[in-house]
């Protein structure tokens, strides 16, 4: 009965409970990544500007050949709360960008032009099909939201303590661990690479970050580990460009509510003072 049922569901192109219930069985085991320190964590956390600028450099030199960051514009690079490049520098980054803005020209034909500050940062491929064709059928994912779109199971009771410790960099920890989690000498299916932290371990993306591949001008260590930290911090910002504003306003809101709560409570005490049983 069950079998016939699931068969009918499948042939009808439905994916209901049946898939929902076999899904987890296919879910690959995931090794929890280590915890890293992030300048942006905690109530008062802010991004490290220099780190975001280095992270952008790593993205540009190591990632942008395959991965887009569709949700970001060049102007964002100059806005408060981000890497805060001077506007002129952000404009220069746009003008020198390795990919062009693809448009339909006035003659109705596809054309390309140099990006401007106001443009979204163009990715490496004209469309999803092109990205898939260049990567054996599976397009490299857009990175704009990556630290938010990935996570790992915290388990009891940590998922509860996280509420109070404000640990919310699960995705960032995973991304950083992933970038430095490649291991050599393991048996892998063709076209894949072994990564300790990737769910299921076999990932199409090769180990990209190598010591010394990006030259920093601020004297930071030029190691794969540092690149991973910097580019992950940069992506944490692209995933939520207004994080600093959020935490700043949030603190003001909490402070206001605590004062209001105190005042309201003592007003209530006074109002109720003469009611019997509420001495």
């Amino acid at each position: 009965m069950m079998k016939r049922f699931s068969l009918r569901m499948a042939t009808a192109g439905l994916a209901g409970l049946v898939i929902a219930s076999i899904g987890p069985a296919q879910a690959a085991e995931q090794v929890a990544p280590p915890r890293f320190n992030w300048a942006s964590s905690g109530i008062f956390g802010t991004f490290d500007r220099a780190q975001l600028q280095r992270g952008f450099q790593v993205y540009k030199e190591a990632c942008a050949a395959c991965h887009s960051i569709n949700l970001m514009s060049f102007r964002n690079l100059a806005q408060p709360g981000g890497p805060e490049f001077p506007t002129a520098q952000a404009a220069a980054i746009a003008a020198d960008w390795m990919h062009k803005v693809r448009e339909i020209g006035d003659d109705g034909q596809p054309t390309e032009r140099t990006p401007r500050l106001a443009d979204r940062i163009p990715g490496p491929f004209a469309n999803k099909k092109a990205a898939e064709a260049a990567h054996g059928g599976k397009a490299p994912p857009d990175l704009s939201l990556m630290p938010r779109a990935r996570s790992y199971e915290r388990g009891f009771p940590w998922f509860l303590t996280d509420i109070f410790t404000l640990y919310q960099e699960h995705g960032a920890d995973y991304v950083k661990a992933f970038l430095t989690g490649y291991e050599e000498g393991k048996e892998t299916p063709p076209g894949t690479h072994y990564n300790k932290y990737y769910p299921g371990n076999f990932v199409a993306m090769p180990n990209v970050l190598q010591d010394g591949m990006v030259t920093y001008s601020d004297g930071s260590p030029q190691t794969a580990k540092q690149y991973a930290a910097d580019v992950t911090a940069f992506l944490m910002w692209t995933a939520e460009p207004h994080m600093e504003q959020r935490k700043r306003i949030g603190f003001q809101v909490l402070l206001f509510l605590l004062v209001l709560g105190g005042l309201t409570y003592f007003t209530k005490k006074k109002v109720w003072k003469n009611v019997e049983g509420h001495a």
Partner: peptide, 23 residues
């Protein structure tokens, strides 16, 4: 006034999530 007290303290919980643990 009593509802107001309850509401303000509930809002503190709400804002804790909305501003510090939004996801």
């Amino acid at each position: 006034i009593k509802d107001a007290v309850g509401l303000v303290f509930f809002l503190i919980l709400f804002m804790w999530f909305a501003f510090f643990q939004p996801t």
